[in-house]
Amino acid sequence: MNIIKHLRERMGYSQQELADKIKVSRQTIISYESGNTPSVPNVQKLAQLFDVLESDILNGHLPKEPSYEVIPAKAQKETPQMRISIPQENITKFKEVFLYIINKIGSKYNVGQTVLYKILYFIDFDYYEKYEEQLIGARYIKNTYGPTPVDFAKIVRQMQKDGDCEEVKSKYFEREQTKYLPRRKADISCLSAQELEHINATIKKYADWSATELSNYSHKDVPWIAADDKGIIDYETVFYRTPETSVREYAND
């Protein structure tokens, strides 16, 4: 199986749509899917678009494909004394929190896809450390540049089809940047006052950080360090954070 064709079809792009996204002709995509090796700049563009390693594209390695899984609330209550290491997905909440973030900071010059990945991650993992409860409850995988929300592309692509947001390309220090702009306001009725306060604090903390700064910072976080490459990052590991990334005050025994 050709990896570029596989990744294109997994994302639901036509050959022309993929060509438009990396700014080549459809014939170029056809040639790649026929076995020709992309140029180095196009390998970089494909890897960024599909959120895989450049080596995956070059070597034809299919990355692991974790997907979100909704766990019924009843199942969580079976062991009330145990924290949940596999969170319950809440796609609606994910969409509204994402819209809330891009309504607030989506137009900032530094806020592209990578920054949004990290802000979502810290919203989720910091909240879990502080309150031992899920906020969005998204699942994240360990990628080269830091935590990545599972199925982010699928969820946001559906949001685009629904008219909730739009994807735009821009230049940031001569590099192509993927940005998302809102088409409607977020419905924050699904958020508690505590959750909203936490989200606002996280946005304020990281809104001016660059993608590189946030990636480097996430690499110091124990949950990311402890995860296998391309593996799911375990929420439970927030309780082993070092002081540099911890957001909770622990009582000294």
Results as ranks from 00 to 15, higher is better:
Ser107Asn: 15
Ser107Pro: 04
Ser107Glu: 14
Asn110Gly: 09
Val111Phe: 04
Gln113Met: 13
Gln113Lys: 15
Val115His: 08
Val115Asp: 00
Leu116His: 09
Leu116Gln: 05
Lys118Thr: 00
Ile119Thr: 01
Ile119Pro: 00
Leu120Phe: 04
Tyr121Arg: 12
Tyr121Asn: 08
Tyr121Gln: 07
Tyr121Ser: 09
Phe122Glu: 00
Phe122Pro: 00
Ile123Phe: 00
Ile123Gln: 01
Asp124Glu: 11
Asp124Ser: 09
Asp126Lys: 12
Asp126Val: 03
Asp126Phe: 08
Tyr127Ser: 06
Tyr127His: 13
Tyr128Ile: 04
Tyr128Asn: 01
Tyr128Ser: 02
Glu129Tyr: 07
Glu129Gln: 14
Lys130Ile: 13
Lys130Arg: 15
Lys130Cys: 11
Lys130Asp: 04
Tyr131Met: 11
Tyr131Arg: 15
Tyr131Glu: 12
Glu132Cys: 08
Glu132Asn: 14
Glu133Ile: 05
Glu133Tyr: 07
Glu133Gly: 03
Gln134Ile: 12
Leu135Ala: 07
Leu135Lys: 02
Ile136Lys: 01
Ile136Arg: 01
Gly137Asn: 03
Gly137Leu: 04
Gly137Arg: 02
Ala138Glu: 14
Ala138Phe: 13
Ala138Arg: 11
Ala138His: 13
Arg139Ala: 10
Arg139His: 11
Arg139Thr: 10
Tyr140Met: 05
Tyr140Lys: 04
Ile141Met: 11
Ile141Pro: 00
Ile141Ala: 08
Lys142His: 10
Asn143Leu: 13
Asn143Arg: 14
Thr144Ala: 12
Gly146Lys: 00
Pro147Tyr: 02
Pro147Thr: 06
Pro147Phe: 04
Thr148His: 05
Thr148Ser: 06
Pro149Trp: 05
Pro149Asn: 12
Val150Gln: 07
Val150Pro: 02
Asp151Asn: 14
Asp151Gln: 15
Asp151Lys: 10
Phe152Asn: 08
Ala153Ile: 10
Ala153Glu: 11
Ala153His: 13
Lys154Phe: 11
Ile155Gln: 06
Ile155Glu: 07
Val156Arg: 01
Val156Ala: 06
Arg157Tyr: 12
Arg157Ile: 02
Gln158Val: 00
Gln158Asp: 12
Gln158Phe: 03
Gln158Asn: 09
Gln158Cys: 02
Met159Phe: 03
Met159Glu: 02
Met159Gln: 04
Gln160Arg: 14
Gln160Gly: 14
Gln160Asn: 12
Gln160Ile: 14
Lys161Gln: 15
Lys161Pro: 02
Lys161Met: 09
Lys161Tyr: 11
Lys161Phe: 08
Asp162Trp: 05
Gly163Cys: 03
Gly163Ile: 01
Asp164Asn: 13
Asp164Thr: 00
Cys165Gln: 00
Cys165Asn: 02
Cys165Trp: 01
Cys165Met: 08
Glu167Met: 11
Val168Ala: 08
Val168Lys: 09
Val168Met: 05
Val168Asp: 02
Lys169Ser: 14
Lys169Cys: 10
Lys169Val: 12
Lys169Gly: 10
Ser170Leu: 07
Ser170Gly: 05
Lys171Phe: 14
Tyr172His: 09
Tyr172Ala: 04
Tyr172Arg: 04
